[in-house]
């Protein structure tokens, strides 16, 4: 069974990009979330092998979502996706338990390298 991924980003374009990159290498994108709150709810339902998480989102941001998901499952694997201008928030997310990060704009190779390293 291929590994499952939950993609979280408020921008449709970013969700599509990640989905295309991941499915091209056989990962299953089992769900999408548009903010941190949705990511937490979907995580409870789906228990994916990996969550990709944008940093700045409406309702609940990526840092808060990382904390909530780690409360639900301390073993959750979370890959942060951020742009250059969010370094301090990215550090907060890593301190809250995120495993790794990739920067936007997405490059296929760096996304796949990080994902492979985290979930195989």
């Amino acid at each position: 069974m291929s590994k499952s991924v939950l993609v979280t980003d408020d921008a449709l374009y970013c969700r599509m990009e990640l989905k295309n990159i991941l499915t091209s290498r056989g990962y299953r994108v089992v769900g999408e979330a548009r903010n941190g709150q949705e990511a937490v709810e979907r995580y409870r339902e789906l228990r994916p092998d990996l969550v990709t998480m944008d940093v700045v989102m409406p309702e609940m941001d990526g840092v808060a979502a990382v904390k909530k998901i780690r409360e639900i499952d301390p073993g959750a694997t979370i890959l942060m996706c951020s742009s250059m201008g969010q370094r301090s928030l990215l550090m907060e997310a890593l301190q809250a338990g995120a495993s790794d990060f990739v920067t936007k704009p997405f490059r296929d190779r760096s996304v796949l390298n990080s994902v492979r390293k985290l979930i195989g």
Binding site: Y13, S83, G85, R87, S88
Partner: peptide, 24 residues
Amino acid sequence: GRLEKSALAELGTLVTDTALALLE
């Protein structure tokens, strides 16, 4: 369409976030 507008909005965010990193 919706995807194309989302991509252009993301371009705006990328430019802005890159500028904000320089300002930071």
